[in-house]
Each structure stands twice: as C-alpha cells, then as structure tokens.
Design a protein around this nucleic acid. Structure first.
Length: 504
RNA sequence: GCUCCGGUAGUGUAGUCCGGCCAAUCAUUUCGGCCUUUCGAGCCGAAGACUCGGGUUCAAAUCCCGGCCGGAGCACCA
C-alpha cells in the first residue's frame, strides 16, 4: 500500500495497465442510482405538484416538486402545477409568480397550470352531485355540538335529512353568514380516527379572494378540491408528505361516493434542514419583524435564498433524488449540499484573487527587473479559458491572517519575501527556494490597481476586501472561486463588487 | 391522551416484501499519502452503521413479541 501511495498517478496508471486491471467498476454502480420504480404503472403517468400559494418555495417544496418532475420524466408522463388557493385567507398574491420563478430556476417544467380559484363552479357542481347521491349533507350544527356527537360516534340531526332537503339547504347556504353551514362528506361515524368522521367538504368564507374577489362565498376545503381535481385531471400517482396520510383516508370516501377510482398514493417523511426552520409563516413573520432581510436572506431555506448563495439547482436535484420518497424522516445537511454543489462549481467557476482584510506592504529591496505583470489561468484545469493579468510592482496588499507565524512567504507567481515585524523584504525569486523554506504560498493584490469588494457570508456577516483588476469583467450571477477563500456568487457589480459566499 | 407510522456510519441512501451470496452498497464527510505555484480539483487509501432485549430458525439488518427513541394525524389550513 505504502509503495503504491508513493507512486505518482501516472506511475499508478501504468502499474495497473501492466497488471491488466481496468478501473471501470465505478461507472457501473453510478448507473444504478436513481429513483426506485413507481407502483401501478398501467397508463400514461400523470403527476402534480400542488403548492398553497402562501409564499415562495423552500427546500421542502423542492423535494415534492423534484420528485414529481423526475417521475414524470422517467415514465414520459406529464406534470401538472396546481395552485391550491381555496382558502382566501391563506393566499399571498405574489406567491403565484414566485412559485413559478422558483420552479423554473429548479429546472422544472410543467405541462399544465391549474389554479383552483378558477374552478370554484366545478367544485359547486360536484358538491351538488354528492348531495344527489346522498354522499353528503348540509350541516347547520354548531361546531361544538357536532364535535361532541362525532366523538361519541353519533349522527347529528342533519345527517339523515332527505336529499331533496339537502339540495334545498345547499341553495340556501349561499346566503348564510360565515360559519352557519357546511357541507359534510359522509364517512364512517364509527371510524376509529374521529378526524375522519364526516369531514367538511365545503364551507362559507366571507373574505375577498385575492384573485376572484367576492365572487364566491362557498369554498371547498383542500380535501374536497384535491379529490375532484385529481380525478378530473387524471392524476395517476400522488406523491406527498406523510402529513397527508389521514387526508388520503378522508378522500377515499369521496372517491367511493362519486364512484371514482382513486390514484396511487405515496407518502414520504418530513424533511428537515440542518439549523434552518422552513415554515413559510414563520419566515414571513421574521421578514415583517425585520429579523430577515427578505425571502432571499442567506440564512433561510427558501429556493431564492439558496440560489442567491450560489447553490446550483442541479445539486438540490441530486440531493432530492438521493433522499427519494421514503416514509422515514430525514435531515438534509449543508455538508451534503455543499459537497454536491462543489462538484459542479469547481468545474465551471473561474478563479480570482480576493484579499480579505487587506494589509498594505511595500516589499523592500525588490530588484527592479522583477517588476512586471504576472499571468494566471482563469481555471487551472482549463488553460483554454484564458488568463488574467496582475501587475506587480512590489506594492501589494496581502491578507492579514496570512502573516501569522509566517517567516517566509511566497506571493504566488511573483517572489518570496521575508516577514519582519511589520514589513516585507525581498528574499528570492524561485519556487524551488520557496519550497526549500517551506514557505506558504499566498495570493495578493496590487496596491494601485484593484477593486473594492465585500463578501456576504451565510450568517449575513460581511467581509471586506479587494479584488484583482481582472475581476472588473465579472457580471452578476457569475460564480467564481476566490482562491484560498472559497466559492462565491457575484450579486452586484457597481463601484464595489458584492459577493454572496457559497462555501469553501 | 388517543390513532397510525418509522429507526442501517456524522448526514443521506441501497439491502428488509421473497431470511443464507451482507465480514452490509453508493454519495457526502473526516483523516493519511501522491500530485499541484489555491489550504481547490484530481488520483490512491483509510475511518465510520444494522436502536435495545427476547423469540423462531441450521442461519436474522431481513420474520415474531416487547422496550427505548423519533415522527405524523387528531381544523369550517393546506
């Protein structure tokens, strides 16, 4: 083993060739990765992603969206984006747009967009049908009274009304004040889970809807609207969180009443994100209080925050595919995301010098002929991308923390210097000399030609510094590696270049 | 409290249905070496797990029972 490790990569390769061994096993196992097959594939697979438009998407939504999208692709099926806005009080009018932006960034394409508030008449129509089939009833009981009866598995007086009476009550319901009547779906009053017993399908809401105003007063509940839509849209598989397990059970009664075949339901566990709370309502609160700067505050787990930090959609996608749709909860670690992201970024990000907390020096006794311009590749593995030029005249900024305990330093591609108290003195030129003295190789910035910059860290701390002149060409959204500092995304490029730090 | 569900390395995941080929997969992570004018990348290698206790069986990560731990639901929210 030790012997092998001492060999250079090339020698190792040659050794392998001699022995007739080929390194191809890795590729085979990679092909095995991916999502497990979906059960009950008979016809064209139709899936949906159905968010409540109450804010932009976060990493938890990304899982639902990506999983549905991946399965749709896998089976050449289609994906429907459905906005579930049947509670006027829980709608943020901005969210319709934000959700679509977030999905586009994630690389998710949907075949059809459905907005439930456009479909209220459809739900009313099926409400009537349900009453005609005697699968539901209009209940005018006080909530407390109904709850008491329900908990004792007893029917309320409204339950056994004839359907003609229910249809009449349905018409009257349109003029009743909020809270006075609901349409209940008949289930099993003896069901061991009281929540399932005769659940509410439609209710009166006296609140202007951001999209339809006061046009409607009777809105379906999520369970009612979802069932009708999933059937009408031909959804074959429903992939959703395990918090919907009892909803699935509720919905099954409605499928029975309407004599429809339910889709295949798959529930996955909760997704936590290390050190981050994902709740949209709590995030909104934080923004209103001023704790967060906005939906894209780098401390948040929203898609826009992650994007702003330079995380690639592909990294998120890979992580989600790996987590999959199993029922056990899982915690996504930043390390995992960073690792996946780095694989992508390292290849694409060009390199630049950024000196944090710059300290100025004039190198003493620098031979005149060593002044000039140094050239460094934009990417060490891709010389074809070109080079950047950095003027060197002995007057430089270097990073404060590079001076600690340093005796001899090499300014990369330039010269070696001796560190004395608070000054730098020319020592030698060659790299070999630097190696001999075990000098740390550090980056630097010319004193006359540089660009002010700051890097916003994931905890919102700001690190001030200077950039090399070639960084003038940087444009917003480009991702670079600041050598020896880390990857960062260009956020603004005015007088000063502003970066968002991605990771090491 | 009641009802349901889960528990494989630091994290995620494969294997669990149909017990043996599991001295347990892959990714990420961490560490060591090689290479390198970035502490990056690459290459080589290593570390690290079946929640616990019983039972069934020739044989258990896998089947059964119980404990522990965790989660979900118990709305006129989604």
């Amino acid at each position: 083993m030790e012997k092998v490790n001492k060999l250079t990569p090339k020698e190792q390769e040659e050794e392998l060739k001699k022995l007739g061994i080929k390194l191809e096993e890795k590729k085979e196992t990679e092909k095995k990765r991916g999502l497990p097959p979906l059960p009950n594939i008979q016809q064209k697979v139709i899936l949906r992603f159905a968010p409540n438009p109450s804010g932009p998407l976060h990493i938890g939504h990304a899982r639902a969206a990506i999983l549905n999208h991946e399965y749709a692709k896998k089976y050449n099926g289609s994906l429907i984006l459905r906005m579930e806005d049947t509670d006027p009080r829980r709608v943020d009018p901005e969210a319709y747009k934000m959700i679509q932006e977030d999905l586009e960034w994630l690389g998710i394409k949907w075949d059809k967009l459905i907005i439930q508030s456009d479909r209220i008449p459809i739900y009313h129509e099926y409400a009537k049908k349900l009453l005609e089939k005697n699968g539901g009833y209009i209940c005018t009981c006080k909530p407390e009274k109904f709850k008491k009866l329900k908990d004792e598995s007893r029917p309320c007086p409204c339950r056994n009304l004839p359907k003609e009476e229910n249809l009449k009550r349905w018409e009257q319901m349109h003029h009743l004040p909020e809270g006075e009547a609901v349409l209940r779906v008949k289930t099993d009053l003896k069901h061991k889970n009281p929540a399932i017993r005769d659940w509410v399908g439609l209710r009166i809401v006296d609140e202007a809807h951001p999209r339809t105003g006061k046009k409607y007063r009777i809105y379906p509940t999520m369970n009612f609207a979802v069932t009708i839509d999933d059937h009408l849209l031909g959804i074959t598989h429903v992939l959703r969180g395990k918090d919907h397990i009892t909803n699935t059970e509720k919905q099954e009664y409605l499928y029975q009443h309407l004599e429809w075949e339910p889709p295949t339901f798959i529930h996955y566990g909760r997704l936590h994100m290390e050190n981050i709370q994902l709740s949209t309502s709590k995030t909104r609160e934080g923004i209103q209080k001023g704790t967060y700067k906005g939906w894209d505050d780098p401390r948040l787990g929203t898609i826009r925050a992650i994007k702003r930090r330079g995380i690639q959609a592909q990294a998120i996608r890979e992580a989600m595919i790996e987590i999959g749709a199993k029922i056990a909860d899982s915690t996504l670690s930043w390390k995992k995301i960073y690792g996946l992201n780095k694989n992508i970024l390292d290849e694409m990000a060009n390199r630049y010098f950024f000196v944090a907390e710059p300290t100025p020096f004039e190198i003493k006794n620098l031979p005149e002929h060593l002044k000039g311009t140094i050239k460094r590749p934009l990417h060490p593995d891709h010389p074809e991308r070109g080079h950047r030029q950095i003027p060197f005249n002995g007057r430089v900024y270097i990073q404060k923390n590079d001076l600690k305990e340093a005796k001899i330093l090499r300014l990369v591609d330039a010269v070696n210097v001796k560190v004395r108290d608070k000054s730098l003195e020319y020592h030698s030129r060659s790299l070999e000399e630097a190696r001999k003295h075990n000098a740390r190789i550090i980056h630097w910035i010319p004193m006359e030609d540089n660009i002010p910059a700051s890097v916003i860290m994931p905890n919102t701390k700001i690190i001030e510094g200077l950039l090399e002149p070639a960084a003038k060409k940087l444009k917003t959204d480009q991702i670079v590696q600041l050598e020896r500092f880390g990857f960062a995304r260009v956020d603004k490029t005015n007088q000063k270049t502003i970066f968002y730090y991605t990771h090491k």
